[in-house]
Simulated assay, not measured.
Amino acid sequence: MNRSLLSRELDHQLKLYAAKGGKTSRRSTVRRARRFIAFCQRPAEQIGRRQVYEFFEQHQLSPTTQRDYYYAIALLWRLLGRSGEPPRPRD
């Protein structure tokens, strides 16, 4: 992944998140968060609600996979210090 899209601090926070708790699940969540950032093609700090909507519209994902990506984006939202929650995928 292009490191310029992911700040050193955010990269470190994602690594710390993956290192604790259920390793397999957390690693998968971090991978999904990184894929989402790569999809947006902009620094993570510039990602907003619009990019979340675009991501879910452009990817035909099963409901379970949508849920998993939503949790990964919600993690990213928390790590970036955003208020509230990211938008949920539309049904």
Rank of each mutant, 00 (worst) to 15 (best):
S4H: 06
R8G: 14
L6R: 01
E9V: 10
S25K: 09
L75I: 05
V30R: 01
S25E: 07
I37A: 01
Q13K: 07
E9W: 03
Y69T: 00
P89H: 10
T64Q: 14
C40S: 04
R90D: 12
Q51G: 05
R8H: 05
T29H: 01
L76F: 04
I47W: 00
L80F: 07
M1N: 03
S83H: 11
R88M: 13
R78Y: 06
D91H: 13
R8N: 14
P87Y: 15
R31D: 03
L14T: 03
T64I: 09
L75P: 07
H59G: 03
L80E: 10
I73A: 10
E45D: 12
R26W: 05
V52K: 04
L80M: 11
T65V: 12
Q51Y: 03
S4G: 03
Q60W: 08
G48F: 03
P89R: 13
L10E: 03
E9C: 04
Y70Q: 12
L14H: 04
E57G: 12
D68I: 10
L61F: 14
Y71K: 13
L5N: 01
S25N: 11
Y71C: 15
Q60I: 12
R78P: 06
Q58H: 11
Y53F: 14
A44M: 03
Q58S: 10
Y53V: 14
L10Q: 02
L10C: 08
T64N: 12
G84A: 05
E85Y: 07
R42T: 15
R50V: 13
F55R: 07
L76Q: 04
Y53G: 08
I47Y: 00
A74K: 10
E57F: 12
S28A: 11
L75E: 04
R82C: 06
R27W: 00
P43R: 15
G84M: 09
R26V: 11
T64Y: 14
P86W: 07
G48K: 11
A18F: 05
I37C: 00
L5K: 01
E85K: 07
I37E: 00
L75N: 04
I73E: 03
L80K: 11
Q66D: 14
L79T: 07
L16T: 09
Q66S: 13
R78D: 06
A38R: 05
Q60H: 09
P87H: 10
D68Q: 15
L75S: 08
Q13I: 01
C40Q: 01
E57A: 15
R88I: 10
R34A: 01
R31A: 06
L5M: 05
V30P: 07
I47L: 00
R8D: 15
